[in-house]
Design a protein around this nucleic acid. Structure first.
Lengths: 180, 180
DNA sequence: GGCGCCACATACACTGGTGTATGTTGCCTA
DNA sequence: TAGGCAACATACACCAGTGTATGTGGCGCC
């Protein structure tokens, strides 16, 4: 029943999974090793210590998130639709992960820095969509910020699944935000 | 140099302080005892165990938050001003605490339940302000939700102090939200 | 066919936490 | 003035984690 040897990527993927399901408190060598059916020896073979491992985990998350941003930006159909996508789809399957990372960022400055970068990138995408939709540049930034904050705020509700706006409400909001 | 004997309230106040400054990971008997210059014996004299202590901490936070809500609601001057207050003042000195509690809520269902209740109450206040300001009931709820999510989202940014809207922008937003 | 390295396993010393059981000290009170 | 209780302190057994040092099995390769 022995499985193929593990790579650092395997550890990072498991880390992301545990982060999503149990929060950053689960990012420890011993529990992760158990989840991968190996001992901590493997962990300390691939990584120097917990701190550097955490750094690689958050870097991995940044890449994942950046990938999502690129894809979202590429689907820039009509601005109204792009806005819907950005508001809704960005945090669809990634909600739990996003919540966990943001909670983590409140106690780890390195994570906070990474999250801040991703935030800037995402808000930039939203801003460009608004500008493409005819919103004056001066107003676009603060509106994009507002929208982004609302999206983050929603998923930081204790039960984000119960905190939803109807499609009609989202469309109404998008229309409001695209007003010149 | 001996100080007066501690009460459970002293422990709860210290807990809130540590929660605010270091996050919920600091809510442990040993570190708190050290911060209060006593030993864990005192902790286990006043509380059964960590779990019940945590329950009292979050209950204490709920009362604090409810107090703020009452005060905010009582200052219901003109709706525009009340909205400013709700958006800005609620999380002024309490930003770090709010962040910590919300991060905590992502890993503790009991905390999540308490936070959810406070959220409902706060959104209710915002909704009433909007209704007082002439917004139709049907639209008031979703707009109040949006505003609340944005407020929460802002303070969950890694550096909330750098994520601010100018007073002009807030006023503009309040005006927008109060549109019938 | 022995060499070396990769991917672990094992063992050890250590830290920082929990909960419990049992002192100890001062004050309040009958 | 003796008892009793509140507010601790002390000591113990235990657990879950870290990091490090060293052992080991297989496989690639010349």
């Amino acid at each position: 029943m022995d499985s193929p040897p593990l790579t650092p990527a395997d550890w990072l993927n498991m880390a992301v999974k545990e982060l999503k399901e149990r929060g950053h408190g689960a990012l420890k060598a011993q529990p992760l090793a158990k989840a991968l059916n190996v001992t901590r020896g493997s962990f300390y073979h691939h990584f120097d210590n917990l701190e550097s491992f955490h750094a690689k985990v958050i870097a991995h998350w940044s890449e994942i998130s950046s990938g999502q941003i690129i894809r979202t930006a590429r689907e820039m159909a009509p601005p109204e639709q792009a806005l819907d996508d950005l508001l809704q789809k960005t945090f669809q399957s990634g909600e739990a992960l996003e919540r966990a990372v943001r909670a983590w960022s409140t106690v780890d400055p390195a994570v906070a820095a990474a999250v801040a970068k991703v935030d800037v990138a995402r808000i930039g995408v939203a801003e460009n969509i608004l500008i493409d939709g005819g919103v004056p540049q001066s107003a676009a930034k603060s509106r994009a910020q507002l929208m982004y904050w609302a999206a983050i705020g929603r998923l930081m509700m204790p039960f984000p699944a119960e905190n939803v706006l109807s499609q009609a409400e989202i469309t109404e909001l998008a229309r409001l935000m695209l007003r010149p």
